[in-house]
Computed example of a mutant assay.
Amino acid sequence: MLLITCPHCGPRPELEFRWGGEAHVARPADPSALDDRAWSEFLFVRNNPKGLFAERWNHAHGCQRWFNALRDTHSDKFVATYPAGAPRPDIAAEDAR
């Protein structure tokens, strides 16, 4: 079983967590100023890299808090987890492997 380290609770089994999409996506300052195309791109277009990726996770069956994680999508290895609102750790993709 995959263990995910909640920055608030420590290592827990993956079944306790829910994935929340790409991390660090800024909401538009004035959403009403966007046309339909720009709004749909904000809602639906996300990165899908092979390698290190910043994601949002929720500890749904634990503290129920949101946090961010750096995960290598190639190996499914969690490289780092950090509280929501904290800056992304400076970790190179080569260091993750």
Rank of each mutant, 00 (worst) to 15 (best):
M1R: 11
L2H: 15
L2M: 10
I4K: 04
T5F: 04
P7N: 03
C9Q: 02
C9G: 03
G10T: 05
P11D: 05
P11M: 03
E14A: 09
L15V: 05
E16P: 00
F17Q: 03
F17W: 10
R18F: 09
W19N: 07
G20S: 15
G21T: 03
V25C: 04
A26G: 07
A29V: 06
A33Y: 09
A38R: 15
S40R: 14
L43E: 14
L43F: 03
N48S: 12
P49C: 00
P49I: 00
K50R: 11
F53M: 06
A54R: 13
A54N: 13
E55Y: 02
R56N: 13
W57I: 01
N58F: 08
N58M: 10
H61I: 01
G62R: 00
C63Q: 02
Q64I: 06
R65K: 09
W66Q: 13
N68T: 03
N68C: 10
R71I: 09
R71V: 10
D72I: 05
D72L: 01
S75H: 08
D76T: 02
V79K: 09
A80V: 01
T81N: 09
T81H: 15
Y82S: 01
P83C: 07
A84D: 14
G85S: 05
P87Y: 08
R88G: 04
R88V: 12
I91N: 07
R97Q: 12
